[in-house]
Amino acid sequence: MSWSNFKYVLLVLLSTSLCLFGATDDNELPAPKRWDKRVHLRYEGWERLKPTHVKMQYAGGMGVMSAGVGWDYGKRRQWETDFLIGYLPPKYATDLLFTLTVKQNYIPWSMSFDEHWALEPFYCGLYLTTIAGEEFWKKEPGRYPNRYYNFSTKIRPYIFIGQRMNFNLQNSIVQHISLFYEVSTCELYIISKATNKSLTMKDILRFSFGAKIQLFKK
């Protein structure tokens, strides 16, 4: 995978670092809302680079299975940035292939039902996935002079919406475990739908699910 393919990743990493280091002080946190009990547990200095959670996800255009770490920020942890590595087994390609995904999540609401259960009824975001392999390209190769292929097969941007259910553990290591599902699509599917009316929503939408483990501040 060439270095140029990671420029998008570096841009997101830079913006994430600015958000992490630009977080407000603890005394600026608002009082907890009746339903939304989220409070950001802030690190100090370089400790802000420590991941706040780990994630595992099945499907979603980032391989059959992917896993990685992420960081949350914002006064109520409403923003998350994840970095995930996935794989595509040989049965779906010519060889075992790996993917790299940078994912940005926005979680505007959280509803706490009791001490243990909380629902995030809606969240959304976008992610960028790149895949290793010489058969994938960022720009159309010269062997296609008529430009039949106008989309990169190596880099794919997605948008998504989803829901999460949280179970609070409140132990020394794990704060809560979340189960989530997402519905996503990419620019190729959207343009294909616009130019081919025979395609249904089932043809352009992708369903995925996974788990998130929220870590306590250490």
Score class of each variant (00 low, 15 high):
residue 4 S to N: 15
residue 7 K to I: 12
residue 8 Y to A: 10
residue 10 L to C: 12
residue 22 G to E: 02
residue 22 G to M: 04
residue 23 A to R: 13
residue 24 T to A: 13
residue 30 P to K: 09
residue 36 D to V: 06
residue 37 K to D: 09
residue 42 R to S: 09
residue 44 E to K: 15
residue 45 G to Q: 03
residue 49 L to H: 01
residue 54 V to F: 10
residue 55 K to N: 11
residue 56 M to L: 15
residue 57 Q to T: 09
residue 57 Q to D: 05
residue 58 Y to L: 12
residue 59 A to E: 13
residue 62 M to N: 10
residue 62 M to T: 07
residue 64 V to H: 07
residue 65 M to C: 07
residue 65 M to Q: 07
residue 65 M to P: 00
residue 68 G to F: 03
residue 68 G to D: 02
residue 74 G to H: 00
residue 75 K to I: 13
residue 79 W to S: 01
residue 80 E to S: 11
residue 81 T to K: 03
residue 87 Y to T: 14
residue 91 K to S: 15
residue 92 Y to H: 11
residue 94 T to Y: 13
residue 96 L to Q: 12
residue 97 L to P: 01
residue 98 F to I: 08
residue 98 F to T: 10
residue 99 T to M: 04
residue 101 T to C: 07
residue 102 V to E: 11
residue 104 Q to P: 02
residue 111 M to T: 15
residue 112 S to K: 13
residue 115 E to G: 09
residue 115 E to I: 01
residue 118 A to Q: 10
residue 118 A to S: 14
residue 119 L to M: 06
residue 121 P to S: 06
residue 125 G to T: 00
residue 126 L to S: 12
residue 126 L to R: 02
residue 130 T to P: 01
residue 132 A to L: 08
residue 135 E to P: 08
residue 136 F to T: 10
residue 144 Y to C: 12
residue 144 Y to H: 13
residue 145 P to K: 07
residue 148 Y to P: 00
residue 149 Y to V: 10
residue 153 T to R: 07
residue 164 R to G: 05
residue 169 L to W: 08
residue 172 S to M: 10
residue 174 V to F: 06
residue 181 Y to R: 01
residue 181 Y to C: 11
residue 182 E to W: 03
residue 183 V to P: 07
residue 185 T to P: 00
residue 185 T to E: 04
residue 186 C to M: 04
residue 189 Y to N: 14
residue 191 I to T: 15
residue 192 S to M: 11
residue 200 T to H: 07
residue 201 M to Y: 15
residue 202 K to L: 12
residue 203 D to R: 02
residue 203 D to S: 10
residue 204 I to A: 03
residue 205 L to N: 06
residue 207 F to Q: 02
residue 208 S to L: 05
residue 209 F to V: 05
residue 211 A to M: 14
residue 213 I to P: 01
residue 218 K to C: 02
residue 218 K to P: 15
